[in-house]
C-alpha cells in the first residue's frame, strides 16, 4: 500500500481544511442519524387517537353507599367507592405523620363529595390490581384494598399502610360535571 504514505504527505498540506471538512461532515452525519432516530422513537409515544380517548365520563349515582365499582380509564381500572360514614371516620382519625406517604383524607376527595373516593386501581408497588371491590374480597388490615401480588395493604382512603408499596393509590384528575356525572382525565 504505497499510496497510504503518499496520502499522509498530502494530509499535512491540507490538514486544517480537511479537519474542518471532516469534522463538519461527521457532525452533520451524526445529526442526520439523530434526526432519523427521533421520529422512530416518537412513534412509540401515544398516538393522536389514543390521546383523544384520555377522558372517561360515568354516572356516579348508581354506586350505592358501601359499594365499590371499577371504571375503565386509559385502559386502567379506576376504583370508585361510595364510602360509609364509618369508613370516612376511619380514614380521618389516622395520624397523618405516621403514614409512609403522608396525606390527609380531605385532600384525596372532593369537598362536599367526601363520600366518593376515586382512585387509580393500580398498586404503586409493581402495578397489580389490588383486591377489595367486591364485599367478599380481602380488604387488608385497614378495611380498604389488599394487593395479593406482594401484600400491600391500603386503607379506606387508598393510602398505603403496610407492605412494600411506596405510595398511596393515585387519585386521578377528575371533576363532577353535575351531581351525578363525573369526568376522569
Amino acid at each position: 500500500m504505497a499510496n497510504t504514505a503518499h496520502a499522509h504527505a498530502a494530509d499535512a498540506a491540507g490538514e486544517t481544511r480537511r479537519d474542518f471538512l471532516l469534522h463538519t461532515t461527521v457532525a452533520m452525519g451524526a445529526v442526520g442519524a439523530g434526526m432519523m432516530v427521533w421520529p422512530l422513537i416518537s412513534s412509540m409515544n401515544p398516538a393522536a387517537d389514543t390521546l383523544s380517548l384520555s377522558t372517561t365520563e360515568f354516572n356516579i349515582s348508581g354506586v350505592a353507599e358501601g359499594q365499590r365499582i371499577i371504571v375503565v380509564w386509559r385502559g386502567k381500572p379506576v376504583f370508585v367507592a361510595h364510602r360509609t360514614p364509618a369508613e370516612i371516620e376511619a380514614a380521618r382519625k389516622v395520624d397523618v405523620s405516621e403514614l409512609r406517604d403522608p396525606q390527609k383524607d380531605e385532600v384525596r376527595v372532593k369537598k362536599d363529595k367526601d363520600q366518593y373516593l376515586i382512585l387509580v386501581g393500580v398498586c404503586t408497588h409493581l402495578g397489580c390490581i389490588p383486591l377489595g371491590i367486591k364485599a367478599n374480597d380481602p380488604h387488608g388490615d385497614f378495611g380498604g384494598w389488599f394487593c395479593p401480588c406482594h401484600g400491600s395493604h391500603y386503607d379506606t382512603s387508598g393510602r398505603i399502610r403496610k407492605g412494600p408499596a411506596p405510595l398511596n393509590l393515585e387519585v386521578p384528575e377528575y371533576q363532577f360535571l353535575s351531581d351525578t356525572t363525573v369526568r376522569i382525565g
Binding site: 421520529p39 422512530l40 412513534s43 398516538a47 393522536a48 387517537d49
Partner: peptide, 13 residues
C-alpha cells in the same frame, strides 16, 4: 391508516 393519520411520524415511517 392509523399509522398514516394518528401515530407520531407514522406517515413518514
Amino acid at each position: 391508516e392509523r399509522i398514516m393519520r394518528d401515530v407520531n411520524f407514522g406517515w413518514l415511517i
